[in-house]
């Protein structure tokens, strides 16, 4: 139990954060695209994420919650060292979240202001999350390389969110807006690809322990599927972006699904890279875990509620399945 519980919680935390990235990622991506659309398209774009964003955002609360429940010492160390980016991210998420409502409730003369706030909030939160991820991977160091690496991920993650956002719009809209989404996708895919490529190169350089894990035989062989799948998915996205007839003929989910697969591979790679540490090179998951009794008590709740949460999340997505329509409270 003492051995397995922290591993189980590590898995739950990883799952929650992965779901956060692929779900709130498209919300934030759409948010960053809003300024480039016409007025009525803005409404439609926001309508396409309206019923979901709140629940999507809850996954990061669960992710941080699991960190707190299972690894309280790491929770304190990580969040204390990420104090500024966390604060900035929170302010971004606050602006984004209230703008959903206020852009239509504060009066027409304020709509422009809240559209800007919606965009700014989405951008700020995405940049800050990227920075946090970068700082985490480099073991929360303050060195120049670590800062450069954080900056690199701070730019890559928003690009990934943009592609998720485009992929989402391709599924949920049609007509002019969908064509625009394809164009946006063509612009965002290259920075995303370049960013991911550079991150992959840079990670083993900034972290010797990660380099050792990846470039020893036969591990390297077993790990090959991870970069391979990423390259294939990236190729698929580029291909359909430049041959949109495929998208329109019933494959509109292809870009979103491929990006999700890239996220999945990246998180598997990350999990392999850091395990069994929770703070790289400093603290293992066992050293920072809560008492067995507390972990068991919460696990009962997780085992009961997590499947139920996934079921009703699926249910909500099915209710709002298909192309987005203007949202009304009717």
């Amino acid at each position: 139990m003492e051995y397995w519980l922290p591993i189980i919680y590590m898995g739950i935390m990883g799952l929650a954060l992965l779901i956060y990235v692929i779900l709130d990622g498209y919300d934030l991506g759409v948010g960053m695209l809003v300024p480039f659309a016409e007025e009525d398209e803005k409404d439609m774009m926001i309508a396409s994420i309206g019923p979901f964003w709140d629940a999507n955002e809850t996954w990061i609360v669960l992710g941080v919650g699991v960190l707190l429940i299972a690894f309280p010492i790491a929770h304190g160390i990580i969040l204390t060292s990420l104090y500024l980016p966390v604060t900035i991210m929170l302010m971004g998420l606050i602006l984004r979240g209230v703008a959903f409502d206020l852009r239509v409730k504060a009066g027409d003369h304020r709509r422009g202001l809240w559209n800007k706030a919606f965009f700014a909030g989405s951008l700020i939160a995405s940049l800050a999350q990227g920075w946090m991820l970068g700082a985490y991977i480099t073991g929360l160091q303050d060195s120049t390389t670590s800062l450069l690496f954080s900056a690199l991920i701070a730019l890559t993650l928003p690009a990934l969110y943009l592609i998720l956002g485009c992929g989402w719009l391709l599924m949920k809209t049609d007509g002019d807006l969908r064509n625009k989404a394809i164009n946006w996708g063509r612009k965002a895919i290259w920075p995303m690809g370049l960013g991911l490529f550079m991150v992959s190169i840079a990670t083993p350089i900034v972290s010797a322990s990660i380099a050792e894990k990846w470039f020893t035989f036969p591990n390297a062989l077993y790990l090959m599927p991870i970069p391979l799948v990423c390259v294939l998915c990236f190729g698929a996205i580029v291909r359909v972006l430049y041959k949109p007839s495929v998208l329109i003929n019933g494959y509109s989910w292809l870009i979103y699904a491929s990006t999700v697969l890239i996220c999945l591979m990246a998180s598997l790679g990350l999990a392999y890279s850091i395990f069994p540490d929770i703070i790289i090179g400093d603290l293992t998951i066992w050293e920072s875990a809560s008492s067995v009794k507390s972990l068991q008590f919460t696990l009962v709740g997780v085992v009961i509620t997590l499947p139920v949460i996934l079921i009703y999340t699926f249910f909500v997505y099915r209710i709002f399945h298909g192309k987005a329509t203007a949202l009304s409270y009717e």
Binding site: E41, D43, A47, F100, K105, E330
Partner: peptide
């Protein structure tokens, strides 16, 4: 009633 998010005239053009 129709000003939740989006206006009625933007309903699914196609």
């Amino acid at each position: 009633s129709l000003t939740a998010i989006g206006k009625p005239n933007t309903i699914n053009k196609e």
